[in-house]
């Protein structure tokens, strides 16, 4: 009976991390949770950092397969700086292993927007990347994010190279973006197809409210005695 009850109230991994983030006994749960994140295409940075921390405290317990999964998931979380956050916790000698070097190179290409080189390198490392469902799509989302920060209008070849799609698969991608995310394909240009990306304060910086002029109240209070 007591046992059954315990089963029922057993905590989720998120709760375990919240209750005691410095508990060496949750290591296995966290490892399982990494696998679960991979298979269910979910993500929890906090739990993953917690696992890396436990590895950092007791390096003899480190299993590099989980470190690799965590780093791949961190790449998928770009533009957030999660990949660096994870590297900060991984000992340098581990980072020197071939598979991690590859991931670092991939991260470097993504960070410096060298998407062509990224896809080239990714093809070479297919065996690593294919272990994580949704990887390609997540990276495409990141690249689209960077393109949307930068361009109001982008030509089809530039887009094609960046997201590594062409021909019919690019058409299908565009179709999806047009109907779901407000993209517009402008075919009237003589120079070729132009894609108009949805406007935001980032690719239309003038949309940003200029709030610099306001004076905070706490500064104004300094002259209250004088004004009275």
């Amino acid at each position: 009976m007591g046992r059954e009850l315990q089963q029922q109230v057993s905590l989720t991994v998120e709760q375990l991390v919240a209750v005691n983030p410095y508990n060496p006994d949750i290591l296995n749960d966290l490892e399982d949770f990494v696998k679960e994140q991979v298979s269910s295409v979910t993500y929890n940075l906090e739990a993953n950092l917690c696992l890396l921390r436990l590895y950092q405290f007791e390096p003899e317990k480190m299993k590099t397969e989980f470190v690799a999964y965590i780093l791949l998931k961190a790449l998928m979380a770009m533009p957030a700086p999660d990949f660096s956050l994870c590297l900060f916790l991984i000992p340098e000698r581990v980072q020197m292993e071939a598979q991690f070097k590859t991931l670092t190179v991939l991260s470097h290409y993504l960070e410096t927007a060298r998407f062509g080189q990224f896809w080239e390198e990714a093809t070479k490392s297919r065996h690593i990347l294919e272990t994580v469902p949704g990887f390609e799509q997540a990276i495409q989302n990141y690249i689209v994010h960077v393109l949307s920060l930068t361009y109001q209008k982008v030509s089809r070849p530039v887009l094609s190279e960046a997201i590594n799609l062409n021909g019919p698969s690019l058409d299908k991608f565009l179709e999806h973006q047009v109907s779901n995310n407000g993209w517009i394909v402008d075919k009237s240009q003589s120079t070729g197809e132009l894609i108009i990306l949805p406007s935001s304060q980032f690719n239309h910086p003038e949309l940003k409210r200029n709030s610099d002029e306001t004076v905070p109240l706490e500064h104004l209070t300094r002259i209250f005695p004088i004004l009275s």
């Binding site: 109001q152 910086p205 200029n210």
Partner: peptide
């Protein structure tokens, strides 16, 4: 921001803190 092959620069005014 870039429109096709043209870069348009927007400088967020170096608003002197007059206040």
């Amino acid at each position: 921001y870039i429109v096709d092959d043209m870069v348009h620069v927007v400088e967020s005014k170096p608003s002197k803190r007059y206040g």
